[in-house]
């Protein structure tokens, strides 16, 4: 991976998308459940505020990585999100990529003067 390939802002934005995908790995969830679970699983490190969760959900839905479906609960209609097969593949690939980036970063931070291979 060359230095010019790495987009820091895109990486930060992508982390939230990965957190959403990861949260849906186990079971389908409503939007609020995703927000609560991401915050709980990261011990409050990652938290959604001001509705920023929804643009992420709609973007992932548009890209076919998750699927939103409506159902009725009494008189109320609710939307639940499911991870698609494409989303699962994307999540696996991106998890490996993030692991590699973090590993290189740690190498730089821990060994003074070291440069990634």
């Amino acid at each position: 991976m060359g230095e010019t390939d790495f987009d820091v802002q895109g990486f930060a934005r992508g982390i939230h998308e990965l957190l959403v995908l990861s949260s849906l790995r186990g079971e389908p969830k409503h939007g609020y459940q995703i927000a609560v679970d991401v915050e709980a699983e990261s011990n409050g490190l990652f938290r959604f505020r001001h509705g920023t969760l929804y643009p992420i959900l709609y973007r992932l839905e548009e890209e076919g990585l998750i699927r939103g479906s409506w159902s009725k609960d009494g008189g109320r209609r609710k939307k639940v999100y499911t991870l698609t097969a494409q989303g699962r593949r994307h999540l696996d690939g991106e998890t490996d990529r993030v692991g590699e980036i973090v590993s290189r970063l740690m190498t730089i931070l821990r060994i003074p003067g070291a440069t990634p291979a």
Partner: peptide, 18 residues
């Protein structure tokens, strides 16, 4: 709940864009 889920101005513009 409002702090977490209710969209602010920037989020609304992002929703419009999407």
């Amino acid at each position: 709940a409002l702090d977490v889920l209710s969209p602010d101005g920037a989020t609304l513009r992002e929703l419009e864009r999407l």
